[in-house]
């Protein structure tokens, strides 16, 4: 049973992302949206306490939320795939349950 995690908070505002990464299993995926997309910045994703590259999870960020916040694709981690809402919907159907961290 694979989990789709959703994160909507900057990792410097609260500990939503840390809570997620400390519990995300290899077959899961993480969608960063709203302020969650700041974690897609390469510099943040690679921080020692976050290390998204070590997770072995699929990583997604909502394109509109990145663009709205002025995040340039070049500054984002290569591990993160940009998606639009139709793909968000599709991912929800592909995973067994949604863990919407709050």
């Amino acid at each position: 049973m694979a989990i789709l995690h959703t994160i909507n908070q900057s990792p410097d505002t609260g500990n939503q992302l840390l809570a997620c990464v400390s519990r995300a299993l290899p077959d899961s995926a993480i969608i960063l949206y709203e302020d969650g997309v700041y974690a897609a910045l390469d510099k943040i994703a690679a921080r020692p306490n976050i290390e998204l590259q070590k997770l072995d999870c699929k990583l997604y960020a909502v394109r509109d939320d990145c663009e709205a916040r002025g995040l340039q694709q070049a500054a984002l981690s290569k591990m993160v795939k940009l998606i639009d809402y139709p793909e968000f919907v599709e991912l929800v159907t592909q995973y067994d349950v949604v863990q919407a961290w709050s």
């Binding site: 049973m1 519990r23 899961s28 349950v97 961290w101």
Partner: peptide, 15 residues
């Protein structure tokens, strides 16, 4: 173990 248990649920509510 709890993380694995999350994956065995049909519905997760987060508050």
């Amino acid at each position: 173990k709890l993380a694995r248990l999350f994956g065995r649920q049909d519905v997760l509510f987060n508050f």
